[in-house]
Amino acid sequence: MVNLNGTILDQNEVNITLENRGYKYGDALFETLKVVHSKIFFWEDHYFRLMASMRILRMEIPMEFTMEFLEQEIIKTISVNGLAKSAARVRLNIDRGEGGKYTPITKNINYSIVVDELENEFYTIDTKPYTVDLFKDYYMSPGLLSTIKTNNKIINVLGSIYAQENSFENCLLLNTNKNVVEVLNGNLFLVKGKTIKTPPLEDGCLKGVMRKQLIEIITKLEDYELLEASISPFELQKADELFTTNVITGIQPITNYRKKSFTTHVATLLVEKLNVKVRLS
């Protein structure tokens, strides 16, 4: 069952027309949420990122789009799918309705909520082999639009196909300045000695909610220094550790990049602190 503008429907009953702007122009954005026992992880951060993203896209935010209203709609959708006492992945999609060419003809806003069951309630470390490579066919643009979760994800799609064809678990994306910005499904962190580095938003990386949580955790660690600074491809093979982040997986260690193997010590430490933060929030 899905939630379309507040109405619960069977998935087969949902009709998206050819004039839908999200379908036609990618004029849409989304949030991916992890919900456990009807508690949305980091909901405030997701909500404020969503509001900021809608403003960047010049969407007119409906008056009813309060934090409480959207939370209720998410929990309602989880409940009708029998997942109120389980872990769930939620996609909250926002589009600008129907009609018009590039210029919208209305200020309508549609929303939809789709849920899937997840196995893990809290975050764990997966140390199975996880090999990545650079995806160099196309480059991301530095700047504000690259930092938000719009439905324009063609580079991520092409990178995923490249990874599948070459038996990689993931790929690293570059911007037009040839700096490493992120992976296909999340942010990137690099560990060298006692320094933990992640690309800055100015390089075009996603303004990830999990990225924000880890930055807050790392800045409180006495033994490590956090840097938000550009990462060149040459730094990857000199790193002690690489890991990726998103709100569904939490932290995913990268074990191999080309001929280099990496440790997972810092990722393991951070997962423990992340779960403590989740429990206390």
Rank of each mutant, 00 (worst) to 15 (best):
residue 180 V to E: 06
residue 142 P to C: 11
residue 182 E to N: 08
residue 219 T to H: 01
residue 129 P to A: 09
residue 104 P to S: 08
residue 17 T to E: 05
residue 167 S to Q: 13
residue 208 G to L: 09
residue 224 Y to K: 08
residue 260 K to C: 00
residue 153 K to C: 08
residue 146 S to W: 03
residue 160 S to Y: 00
residue 229 A to D: 14
residue 16 I to Y: 09
residue 108 N to E: 15
residue 151 N to A: 14
residue 161 I to T: 10
residue 149 K to Y: 09
residue 70 L to H: 02
residue 6 G to P: 03
residue 66 T to S: 15
residue 157 V to T: 12
residue 169 E to S: 13
residue 191 V to P: 04
residue 225 E to K: 15
residue 224 Y to Q: 06
residue 216 E to K: 13
residue 32 T to Q: 07
residue 53 S to I: 09
residue 21 R to V: 04
residue 227 L to T: 00
residue 263 T to W: 00
residue 40 I to Y: 03
residue 130 Y to N: 12
residue 222 E to L: 09
residue 132 V to I: 15
residue 191 V to F: 03
residue 166 N to M: 06
residue 36 V to S: 10
residue 96 R to Q: 12
residue 232 S to G: 08
residue 199 P to Q: 12
residue 270 L to P: 02
residue 183 V to L: 06
residue 221 L to F: 00
residue 153 K to F: 02
residue 110 N to E: 08
residue 78 I to C: 10
residue 31 E to G: 04
residue 189 F to K: 05
residue 91 R to Y: 12
residue 84 A to V: 12
residue 34 K to W: 05
residue 99 G to N: 06
residue 69 F to W: 15
residue 143 G to S: 10
residue 107 K to H: 13
residue 49 R to Q: 13
residue 176 T to A: 07
residue 146 S to V: 08
residue 63 M to R: 13
residue 114 V to D: 09
residue 169 E to N: 15
residue 220 K to T: 15
residue 119 E to V: 06
residue 25 Y to D: 06
residue 71 E to A: 10
residue 39 K to T: 14
residue 70 L to S: 03
residue 151 N to S: 15
residue 60 E to R: 13
residue 234 F to M: 09
residue 279 R to L: 12
residue 133 D to T: 13
residue 109 I to C: 08
residue 86 S to A: 14
residue 194 K to Q: 13
residue 143 G to Q: 10
residue 233 P to D: 08
residue 47 Y to K: 08
residue 164 Q to K: 14
residue 28 A to R: 01
residue 88 A to L: 11
residue 252 Q to D: 00
residue 103 T to C: 01
residue 180 V to I: 14
residue 276 V to F: 00
residue 212 K to N: 12
residue 111 Y to R: 07
residue 251 I to G: 03
residue 237 Q to L: 02
residue 182 E to H: 02
residue 118 L to I: 04
residue 281 S to D: 12
residue 144 L to F: 13
residue 87 A to Y: 07
residue 153 K to G: 01
residue 257 Y to V: 01
residue 51 M to F: 02
residue 268 T to C: 01
residue 238 K to E: 13
residue 240 D to A: 05
residue 5 N to F: 02
residue 10 D to H: 05
residue 168 F to T: 07
residue 69 F to S: 08
residue 246 N to E: 05
residue 27 D to C: 05
residue 272 E to V: 01
residue 40 I to Q: 09
residue 23 Y to Q: 04
residue 34 K to P: 06
residue 230 S to W: 01
residue 46 H to K: 10
residue 270 L to I: 04
residue 141 S to C: 11
residue 29 L to G: 07
residue 211 R to D: 03
residue 165 E to D: 14
